[in-house]
């Protein structure tokens, strides 16, 4: 029974199958919202309402010719897309959907899984950097340098922002943090500032406008992905989609009270809350223009990080008051 359950975790929910299906749905949602915000139609014809468009795109990319540059580091170049996909999928397993028992820690839910999840979500950035560097192209190298520069910008505010609800809940375990806010929903409010900061940081992590600097097509062609084509590009795109699902799931678990109610009701919570976060992400994407790399660093260190520290202070004071 336990084996079956584990296999279910790994491959069905919240494992690979679910992540694949749900991430393509989220991409569709993102594209549709983005299009409607711009008074366009968005995907319309593949499947009803164009729901199958992301899958069609994925399959089409899989079928395309796959070119590896002669000067590239072939081993790294081949392995990285799959590795990136594996990392974000592994991160997806840690989302507290139904695979936990508050009383007993298990291998998908334990003290400190918040940190592990954040760490797993940082890895794709490094993978993208390595991918850019191994493809030996000027545009990719510039893109890779930009990826790292951005990482130093948004990572600290993100960690600080996620820290404050965890401190208030007094736990490093996602399931416990979520349970804490389910019990005291009013305490979600003091964390709003941290939520806003985290949304901006996640936007940067996902390299979406205004932070789509590493692959800004009008500046450096495809940036990090200039040399990637066919299957590898398809995997990278899927990686970003899954990363979007996982990071919005993380924000939902930490800031919006998680996914209570077992598998079914919890699933409804998951969908509603992640879509809400993704809607915010799309809104930011539609609202802004791409900024310059130096402006990202300034934004992160001048505004986001101090605000996150301020939020931490507020939370610590509040915790003192409450206890």
């Amino acid at each position: 029974m336990a084996v079956l359950r584990t296999l279910l975790y790994l491959f069905v929910y919240p494992g690979l199958l679910f992540l694949f299906a749900y991430s393509t749905f989220c991409e569709w949602f993102d594209r549709k919202v983005f299009a409607r915000l711009q008074n366009r139609m968005g995907p319309t014809h593949t499947g009803s309402f164009g729901l199958l468009q992301p899958i069609a795109d994925f399959i089409k990319l899989l079928a395309k010719e796959d070119v590896v540059p002669a000067a590239a580091d072939k081993g790294l170049f081949r392995v990285l897309p799959a590795f990136g996909l594996a990392v974000v999928s592994a991160a997806g397993l840690l989302l507290p959907v139904w695979n936990f028992d508050l009383a007993v820690p298990s291998f998908t839910s334990f003290q400190g899984d918040l940190i592990v999840l954040l760490y797993l979500l940082s890895l794709p950035t490094l993978i993208i950097f390595l991918a850019a560097w191994s493809s030996t192209n000027y545009f990719s190298s510039i893109g890779g340098a930009r990826v790292l520069t951005m990482l130093f910008g948004y990572e600290v505010p993100l960690f600080l922002a996620v820290l404050s609800p965890a401190i208030l809940a007094g736990s490093w375990r996602l399931a416990e943090i979520a349970a804490f806010y389910q019990a005291k929903p009013l305490l979600i409010l003091p964390n709003l500032l941290a939520f806003a900061i985290a949304v901006v940081a996640v936007q940067a992590k996902l390299e979406r406008c205004p932070f789509d600097i590493p692959h800004a097509e009008t500046e450096i062609v495809g940036g990090t992905f200039t040399e990637f084509s066919g299957k590898k590009l398809a995997l990278f795109r899927l990686m970003f989609d899954i990363e979007m699902v996982v990071s919005s799931g993380l924000l939902a678990a930490v800031f919006l009270g998680g996914f209570p109610g077992g598998a079914l009701v919890g699933f409804a919570h998951l969908v509603v809350k992640t879509l809400f976060v993704i809607f915010l992400l799309s809104l930011i994407r539609a609202l802004t223009s791409r900024i310059r790399i130096d402006q990202v660093v300034t934004l992160a260190w001048k505004y986001l990080a101090p605000l996150a520290v301020l939020q931490l202070l507020i939370i610590i004071l509040l915790k003192g008051l409450l206890s």
């Binding site: 915000l37 711009q38 008074n39 406008c209 009008t218 539609a286 223009s289 791409r290």
Partner: peptide, 16 residues
């Protein structure tokens, strides 16, 4: 100009 700066909404609206 909007498009080159990655401000796609601006691009879509002005062209609309």
């Amino acid at each position: 100009a909007g498009h080159e700066a990655g401000f796609d909404s601006f691009f879509m609206y002005t062209w609309r």
